[in-house]
Design a protein around this nucleic acid. Structure first.
Lengths: 208, 208
DNA sequence: GTCTATACCCAGATAGAC
DNA sequence: GTCTATCTGGGTATAGAC
């Protein structure tokens, strides 16, 4: 897995070659999609020869999975840590949840982009993503929204509706930011736009 | 463009070969993305030899554009016709708008899938889609939402917020239906689910 | 209009020198 | 661990027979 402890006396030529390759791969997979990204492109962006990519990762599928795993772990760390900081079941907790989700989408664009690109097709990547990562994320948010409903903070409707509103808006803004910017010149990734978005969203969801 | 009037005496072997190819291309572009779809795959699905695809469409880029153009025209016909049937500026008009949008996403999955796959990248397809088609769609809905705001049907917040909620939810449900189904076994394309979704959405947006 | 054959390029993956 | 060269398959696009 790691090349940091070389068995020979020579030090490695690259600092964390596997990590550099994995990062380059993630960016390209997210920008262009799995099929449109070649191992050669990844090697070029990482600054290593093509063969080294397949030295560290046995094949392209494996590289995809490891790149996703690592990135989802980063999202988890951010998301869970932020939510744990503010677990109150009230209006400010909801605000915090929405802000945190949007912030996560913004900080980790591949999180959204990959789901957008893979989410509608029936293939091994979609199945793998759903079972290994998405299910957990959905359940965490759903449980919290149920608590909010029980506490009377939000109306008593199926939590999946709320979830769709919260995640759908964020994913649209981030996942299609280029399209919307080209079309009507709004900047969904802009912090001011986002703050305004959250403010109005809370007002809509918590009015009684 | 059309091969129906052959200059030779022989009748054409295929009924509307260009249309069949265009339809096959649209489906595959929407399912797999532009790069992952080969001309050979398109030819196979359309049931014609590979070379015929490039006889009717000068190259792959051109085929993509014509497939998108034709499909967006179909969406337009459905969407505009439905909205024109019920132009009232009140709560029932809003319900009709949301229902119509969701119904359109459901009937024309490529509409959503293509935007999801192309929406975040900076390339000729995204620019072309934004300028030629999306801008118009956004403006139509935005104008109507402004009217609803002026009439006091919905709260006075930036129309783009509402638009994001309405289109974001629909696009998430349709664009990532496979992922969500694999993860938590919901069926966003199911009519019952959709009716429930619209009902709660209206309640949330129009409460005062 | 239809179709086979093919030119030409680039992909993923491997072999083996260093 | 690193890297060049290469194998093999599949891609877009074209030529030209029918």
């Amino acid at each position: 897995m790691s090349q940091s402890k070389s068995k020979s006396g020579r030090p490695p030529l690259y600092e964390d070659a596997a990590g550099t390759i994995r990062t380059a791969a993630l960016e390209l997979f997210a920008e262009r999609g799995f099929e449109a990204t070649s191992i050669g492109d990844i090697a070029k962006r990482a600054g290593v020869p093509k063969a080294n990519v397949l030295y560290y990762f046995s094949n392209k599928d494996e590289l995809w999975k490891q790149a996703i795993d690592h990135h989802w772990q980063e999202v988890d760390d951010f998301y869970v840590a932020r939510l744990a900081n503010h677990p109150s079941v009230d209006r400010s907790g909801l605000k915090h949840l929405i802000e945190t989700y949007l912030e996560a989408c913004c900080r980790f664009p591949p999180y959204v982009q990959i789901m957008n690109m893979e989410g509608h097709a029936e293939n091994w990547r979609t199945r793998w993503l759903a079972e290994k990562h998405l299910r957990r994320h959905i359940e965490v948010m759903r449980d919290y929204l149920s608590q909010l409903t029980n506490a009377g903070v939000i109306p008593d409707v199926d939590p999946v509706i709320f979830q769709t509103l919260i995640t759908g808006g964020g994913q649209l803004l981030i996942g299609q930011h280029q399209l919307w910017q080209d079309a009507v010149e709004i900047s969904p990734r802009d912090a001011e736009f986002r703050a305004n978005y959250v403010k109005h969203m809370i007002e809509l969801l918590t009015r009684t």
